[in-house]
Design a protein around this nucleic acid. Structure first.
Length: 566
DNA sequence: GCCGTTTTCGGCCCGACTGTTTTCAGTCG
């Protein structure tokens, strides 16, 4: 699927156009890029069917460029622009306070093309002399270069969420109301910073508590309405105090996404209203603002769960009153992938059972590695049988949780599993996944995974694309074909809930739901501490619009046994 | 460059903040 690839090029064209001072076109390109990037249909399929224009925001001209790229591997106009403006915009625009206009001025007047040039010019005191720039701007640039170099891109949701919830815990006793906002409230897989909103009678007292927390490394800004801190580890947290009558609209506004908000504001305009962070206004009269639900209601639409607010079609559905009822966090009743000391996990089966009970799970699947993955302690048939006996004993001891005996087998290069059927036939649930030979072409890799899907004993394909966020690209598979095959063969696809996997991701989950594939949530826990990540899996499910019936972790133990053929 | 329940031409989201200015452009979220 080349959607991300094409989107990236369109974003680059947008950046370059903006540098050139072209109006409105950058917005058009970005809009098209955004839609392509979150489109669950393969852009190459649309191209073959001559339906590229069915993507919102893609008209004659952008269609032509996509066509050119898919046919020749390049876009002439982009190549020309790159030659004309040889600037590393991507890294330069990461500098806080540096936008296209300033990048353009720096290039034209000082020849700044990249971070190194920028730093040199700043340190030599050349920037302050430019019209529109000054000493302060130059000083900020120097500081922000350091930060941009040090900062590792974005933070994983799973890690940031823990810090964010701890911050809220510290403050919530002192405020009237408090909520996460921003991408972390939408449970995006990575987040830039944490946004928190609160109502407070004595703002500066709250700000004192906030800025003097133990985990604060640096106070970036401190005022009565907004303070920002950087925690140890680099995560930035912003706390805003808002008025009670604006809390809902501020929450809506700061939750985003930006694209979602833009659409909402257009709807407001059509109705003759104005929507901003202070409320929804008819003339100067505030007709909604205190609660978020009412803001949506007054715009004539259903309230939209934060996880869905990405402008991927949710607004149209909410206007029609046809939003799908997505799975709720408390409907997920168990965890279907985890490891123990029987392979590469750190805890015993009983430890995992105890912790799962504490989390309120009704069932878990112990899915230790089997077969050739010796580095992960892959068990042989004899050990699997022994493990089964231990699980049987624990089932007798605990009657409030059911323990499925599972295994995780490897899908070898040829699509066969690395263990015999005799090992698999007696366990309750068989996960299969790719752990080796990640670099295969799409055709071979797709065939490999589909062969595993068709295997007699495979119930679930675990971490289907094998990506590691910010570390390893997904394997090259034709995800639509894989999902269709899963549907045809009644095989479940996993949403791996481990913080750096989240695989399937939100977009592929949405596609799976559309195709009708059942999904399972597994934490892939290797210690008892990892078990709490199951909520991240639910978050991905919600971002992919999965309903309760799409997620097998909402089933009863009896229903699961039936599904696994036991 | 795209788009249309005001439009096939003329619009394209909104407000705050910063740093530079002396009334505002640029950037950010």
């Amino acid at each position: 699927m080349k959607n991300q690839e094409v989107a990236k090029l369109l974003y680059e064209i947008a950046d370059l156009l903006e540098i050139e001072g072209v109006e409105f076109k950058p917005r058009a390109y970005r809009k098209a890029a955004q839609n392509i990037e979150s489109f669950s249909i393969d852009i190459e399929e649309l191209y073959k069917k001559n339906e590229l224009k069915s993507i919102p925001g893609v008209g004659k001209s952008i269609e032509e460029k996509i066509r050119e790229y898919l046919e020749t591997g390049r876009i002439n106009k982009l190549e020309e622009m790159r030659k004309r403006i040889p600037i590393d915009i991507e890294s330069l625009s990461k500098i806080e306070g540096l936008g296209p206009k300033m990048i353009k001025a720096l290039y034209e007047q000082l020849g700044v093309k990249n971070l190194d040039d920028l730093e040199k010019a700043a340190r030599e005191g050349k920037i302050r002399k430019l019209r529109g720039f000054g000493e302060k701007t130059e000083k900020n640039i120097i500081e922000n270069i350091e930060i941009a170099r040090k900062r590792q891109e974005r933070f994983l949701l799973g890690f940031a969420l823990k810090d964010a919830l701890e911050v809220i815990d510290l403050i919530k006793g002192h405020v009237e109301k408090i909520s996460l906002a921003g991408s972390i409230r939408r449970r995006k897989e990575t987040i830039g910073d944490v946004d928190i909103l609160a109502i407070a009678k004595e703002p500066h007292k709250i700000m004192d508590i906030f800025t003097s927390m133990k985990k604060v490394e640096k106070v970036i800004a401190k005022g009565d309405t907004k303070s920002s801190v950087r925690l140890y580890g680099g995560l930035q947290v912003d706390l805003r105090i808002v008025d009670k009558e604006s809390f809902g609209s501020a929450l809506q506004y700061f939750t985003g996404s930006k694209e979602h908000n833009i659409e909402l504001r257009k709807i407001a305009i059509k109705k003759g209203y104005k929507l901003n962070e202070y409320g929804l206004f008819e003339n100067d009269l505030r007709i909604a603002g205190e609660d978020e639900e009412k803001v949506y209601k007054m715009l004539g639409m259903q309230w939209i769960p934060p996880e869905m607010r990405e402008n991927r079609g949710e607004i149209e559905l909410a206007l029609d009153g046809k939003l799908p009822k997505i799975v709720e966090y408390e409907e997920v009743k168990g965890d279907l992938q985890m490891h123990t000391v029987w392979s590469d996990g750190a805890n015993s089966i009983e430890d995992m059972v105890e912790e799962a009970r504490r989390l309120g799970h009704k069932f878990i699947a112990i899915t230790d590695h089997v077969g050739s993955l010796k580095i992960a302690g892959g068990m042989d048939e004899k050990k699997v049988i022994e493990q089964g006996k231990e699980i049987e004993k624990l089932r007798e001891k605990y009657d409030d949780i059911y323990i499925f005996h599972g295994v995780e087998a490897n899908i070898m290069k040829d699509g066969e599993l690395d263990v015999s059927n005799s090992l698999l036939k007696d366990v309750d649930v068989v996960l299969a996944s790719v752990h080796t030979a990640f670099r295969m072409n799409e055709e071979e890799m797709t065939a490999r995974v589909i062969k595993a899907i068709k295997h007699d004993y495979v119930d679930i394909i675990a971490h289907p694309t094998c990506r590691i966020i910010q570390e390893r690209e997904p394997i090259k598979v034709d995800i639509e074909k894989v999902l269709q095959s899963a549907k045809d063969n009644n095989v479940v696809m996993e949403i791996n809930a481990y913080p750096d996997r989240l695989d399937l991701n939100d977009i592929n989950t949405k596609l799976a739901v559309e195709i009708g594939v059942k999904l399972s949530i597994g934490t892939d826990a290797h210690t008892i501490d990892h078990l709490r990540y199951y909520e991240l899996g639910t978050a991905v499910a919600r971002r992919g619009w999965a309903k309760k019936e799409d997620i097998i972790n909402t089933y009863t133990v009896e229903e699961l046994k039936k599904l696994f053929g036991k």
